[in-house]
Design a protein around this nucleic acid. Sequence first.
DNA 1: TCAATAACTGCAATCGATTGCTATCCAAGA
DNA 2: TCTTGGATAGCAATCGATTGCAGTTATTGA
Lengths: 349, 349
Amino acid sequence: MNGRSKAGPGSNLTLKHVAREAGVHPSTVSRALNPATRSLVADDVVARVLQVAQDLGYRPNLLAAALRTGRSRLIGALIPNISNTLFSMILSGAAERLASAGYSLVIADVGDEPARQLELTRQFVARRIDGLILATVRRDDPLVAFCVEQELPAVLVNRAEEKRRLSAVVSDDGLAMQLAVEHLVELGHKHIAHVAGPETTSTGHLRRLGFTQAINSHKLGIEPSIEPTKSYSREEGARAAEKLLAGNDRVTAIVAANDLLALGVYDILREKGVNCPRDISVIGHNDMPLVDMISPPLTTVRISHQEIGRQAASLLLSRIQGDETVQRNVVLTPSLIVRESTAPPRKIR
Amino acid sequence: MNGRSKAGPGSNLTLKHVAREAGVHPSTVSRALNPATRSLVADDVVARVLQVAQDLGYRPNLLAAALRTGRSRLIGALIPNISNTLFSMILSGAAERLASAGYSLVIADVGDEPARQLELTRQFVARRIDGLILATVRRDDPLVAFCVEQELPAVLVNRAEEKRRLSAVVSDDGLAMQLAVEHLVELGHKHIAHVAGPETTSTGHLRRLGFTQAINSHKLGIEPSIEPTKSYSREEGARAAEKLLAGNDRVTAIVAANDLLALGVYDILREKGVNCPRDISVIGHNDMPLVDMISPPLTTVRISHQEIGRQAASLLLSRIQGDETVQRNVVLTPSLIVRESTAPPRKIR
DNA sequence: TCAATAACTGCAATCGATTGCTATCCAAGA
DNA sequence: TCTTGGATAGCAATCGATTGCAGTTATTGA
């Protein structure tokens, strides 16, 4: 009847053992060990129980506690791609905050496929995770509907959702583009183009809108637009840059929606023998590690992804613990890091 | 008596409901749903149960199953720093393989502090994780002793342990250094120095040994050695390079134990106006993302960290599922990626 | 036709902690 | 002296799935 063949890990040391050793009932041990219920037990008994538990090296089985209480103290994270630093930084920040509250982080590296995302989410639910951090969502995502329906506490990171059904922690994409465009305008640029990210993501969408608005507010003309990229990748950036330059020789600066796209732009510039920043200035977004070491060091918008993770974790915890039901959007302020990929435009081209 | 105030997420749909609906006993439902025990149930009953479960959208509570069976289908990962791509790549590979076997990955971003590592490990044990992936271990680590003692299935990744008490998946550090040195020798270098990683890690130690051996096998003289670095970081790399160049003007090539160290070397070379690769060639280790974009593109040793993660997961699963107790060391073969940071030495300097 | 066996299915214990309710004891107040 | 009540501690149900054992029915062979 015993599922385990041998002892196995996990010590098999239970409340009962501690109770017997301390000469009290298991329920008393439970109460003595839990700070919230400790006051129900006489001081001397508490002391004795604590001592015995310590001596025996007792550690409660979190699985059993979770089953009984209905709270697993596990938080799930749905990430499109862990190996992208952006996301691992978010995880790092979230894990830090969660650990200090006694929660652990379960990760699912799910890619972009909605079916797989939903399946992994269901598995999380089956594990009775207490909350969810979503880094995958698109502007209108069925996953969000699922979470709302299941009353599953969830927080979106990095990307937000159009209908604002869930709390989110994001960077101010509009401000970011404003900073970028302003910097270029100050340098004297008049013909600035944008390599937009995927329209399905809030970042791609909002940055494009922000760019347009910034251009308008400076009374500059919008450069003939090219299609948004299909994904945030170096290859897509290259493809976009190629198209952009083929049909336009006025452009003196390119604002990319993301560092990887900017790197793709670099690839094409190099290929065509166009010098950056002398001929064309480039601005990225995210300030990924090492973009300060490439040639030329990339001017980019910095976002503290770790802070996004930390805020998301805090938001989630307060939702779980405090039964707080208001949805909140936390918007972090980005900053422009000026390096050597931006310079005044050449007088003549 | 009910812990939950409201319904909460997780559907509260249990075996009993399915059983009632299908007109059978819960145990029969359990058996019908589990492929391993399905043969104990009549075919028509299986069909009916499956149908009902499907219709109701039943999903078993993994927490309850875990408590009863003693297996949580959770694997813990102890990582010194998730935001380092090296580790997030390992996680990515491991998560992929684990997910396909129905296991989830719980991560702990623990830094380098042994006390914290042990504490987080204990918490993992309290969660009854089925296995552990350790990326943090030093050459002789108390954590390994702990795992062995607790009979906790564990696999080391990237770094191995001296006493080989646990299985490990590593790259062939000796071979890596041999490839690096051979490449430089072929280019004509005779005075090659090494910026060593921390001696506490197996990688730092083994790469230093491998380097020495490779130099000897080519009958070259060992350059006066400098102290190993304290950590794998750009700053430490810079510090080491500074010391190295201060006392030695014969050196025409530097093999760093890691890309970050190599980047630190770059920093100093630039600062001192020493041209790489014309004056000094540099080789890194790991082939981190973007080192192909920096100036000059870094010649480095490529390791498939994702493959390390995958192999580690497989090893762990076979240990858990097959009751296999042999410890195995899986050694992956690295390759040298030649870029532009290496060139023949200048005739005169 | 009857016993022996096989094939299912149900019963109930179990995993380990939590918690509402109840029982006991002692002190304070009437 | 008796009641009231506060402080402790124990009892037993419970969370939801799994599984050894036993019981029932159908099937086979003699």
